[in-house]
Amino acid sequence: MLEPRLGHPNIGLGLGLRTVHYQHILQHEPKVDWFEIISENYMDTEGRPRYVLEQIAERYPIVMHGVSMSIGSTDPLDFDYLQKLKRLAATVGALWISDHICWTGVASLNAHDLLPLPYNEATLKHTIDRVRIVQDVLERTLVLENPSSYVTFADSTMPESEFVNRLAAETDCGLLLDVNNVYVSSVNHDFDPVEYLESVPHKNVVQFHLAGHTNLGTHCIDTHDGHVIDPVWELYRLAHRLTGGVSTLLEWDAKIPEFPVVHAEVLKAKPFIGAETESAADVAETVTDSEQKPDEAATTTVPHPAAYVVAEAE
């Protein structure tokens, strides 16, 4: 019988580590439970991002979240990439490694996007085989996230939730349940997000993601550029109840505000999970900018699965 969260701890409320917040974090050591990094931004660099990460890893638990494993691609797995991933995880003591149920390119190209899979038996077998190989290489359980998606295929023969269920059952992989993605995809594909949450294998859920998105009326785009909306918070409340509570991470990847604003956003989770309200110190840090709103006029409607790290030069 599976342990809850596949034995991983619930490490609380965390934030995606972003370069614009390095200085604040190192200087103020904010009371964040943990940080999640974009793996690809640290795998190859020997510059400041890696140096900062190693300092932060001494003070906070770290989880690695990738965007380039391309677990569903029909291209061969990139074993050099997997080895780099494994080495980074060992260096920073990553608690777990996650990526997405998607593909990012084929024929050796990379679209740098999280592209959706047709959900059918052949795709499921293909993905199961690859997850097993990756888990063997990494020598740990892989955690996979349900992506936001914008198309569905005529070649799909099962809903995404069934695909996720069977993938988890066959491989014992962990799930990173992105609650915002469930909402976004439910709007885009006309399904019931509550049914989705009720149907995923709750004991495999290791982590939640929360984020803002952009609603364009006819569809939603996973822009990660604003506050979490109320319906997503309500889905989060349900997800928390169904799973018994797992580590929760807020992503904010475009038009990133000051650190206290992002921190305040993840602390909003507390009432939904029955946790104590913010400490005085939390409030003191968050009060300054907590009313700041994203610039709606400047909202970009491009999904942001990957971030580029800009060089610092004289």
Partner: peptide, 13 residues
């Protein structure tokens, strides 16, 4: 008959 995954991916890309 569902198309092959590689076929769908090459097409979509």
């Amino acid at each position: 008959t569902p198309r092959k995954l590689g076929q769908v991916q090459q097409w979509m890309q």
